[in-house]
């Protein structure tokens, strides 16, 4: 069996079985390397070579994490949540809540789309912008899976369709260039304008997926606890965070 297929299967199955994704990736890499004809040593060498490239990203996330914690202490999330409650009035009716939900999801989607082209920060905006909104989402009992779907759509669909920002790299620099270099000896000529046109149909499928996710799959309210963004640190730093069961219930 092909080592890549086997490794991916091992990784995915272990992840789905609630093994930590980190362990799943290591186990998958080990299986893939050994089946693919590498020795244990070569497999570990290759793994370690790759790991170095991820360190910079990890440090960046830690910094942004610190920023998110600082923001949460600034009281901005509480302010946003309070403003929302006053906006909705005391007796928030269902229609109003639905409107605010739609507004929030559209805003998240829009920002995610722009993060690929207009303001090409890629995913770096998420740890900055989303945590302050969690209290608002809790207030609305908004299913976070809907938010995840909106974000992922915004992160992927634009680069497959719009040839600007990261899309310019994907569609023009990589897809178009490789199609033409591979197809030239066979008389294939793909022009720049054909690419977005062709990709419109599969991306249209994703758009349908998005609508289904937001208005059908994850429409029902889901309840979350009002937990603090990061565990409270005591002055001595001695208090450990209790591992608490996080989910009240599946909806």
């Amino acid at each position: 069996m092909n080592a890549v297929i086997l490794a991916v299967l091992v990784m995915v199955v272990l992840s789905l079985a609630r093994v930590s994704v980190v362990f799943a990736l290591m186990a998958g890499a080990l299986v893939g390397g050994l089946v693919g004809g590498l020795s244990l040593e070569q497999t570990l060498d290759a793994f370690n070579t790759g790991v170095g490239g991820g360190a910079q990203v990890a440090l960046a996330y830690a910094t942004l994490g610190a920023f998110a914690v600082a923001i949460s202490r600034s009281g901005l999330p509480d302010m946003l949540a309070l403003r929302l409650i006053s906006l909705l009035g005391q007796e928030a009716n269902a229609a109003q809540q639905a409107r605010v939900k739609t507004l929030l999801l559209s805003a998240v989607l829009l920002v995610a789309v722009f993060s690929q082209n207009l303001i090409p920060v890629h995913i770096a905006f998420i740890p900055i912008l989303i945590p302050p909104l969690l209290k608002v989402m809790n207030q609305l009992n908004l299913d976070r899976r809907a938010v995840a779907c909106a974000l992922t759509f915004g992160l992927t669909a634009p680069y497959m369709l719009l040839p600007v920002g990261f899309g310019a790299i994907f569609l023009n620099d990589i897809l178009l260039a490789n199609l033409n270099s591979a197809g030239a000896p066979l008389g294939l000529e793909v022009t720049r304008s054909m690419v977005p046109l062709a990709m419109a149909i599969p991306v249209g499928g994703m758009a349908i997926g998005l609508v289904v996710a937001l208005f059908w799959s994850y429409r029902k309210p889901r309840h979350y606890q009002a937990l603090e963004v990061a565990s409270q640190q005591s002055q001595q730093g001695a208090s450990a965070i209790p591992a608490r069961p996080s989910r009240i219930g599946w909806v």
Partner: peptide, 28 residues
Amino acid sequence: SGMRMMALIGFIMISAAGFAEVMKTTGD
């Protein structure tokens, strides 16, 4: 606190980079 919050994501990214490198090295 920030690092603890992002530790999982960070380490998934790190090990994913290792995973990808192994896949490429196998030639499969």
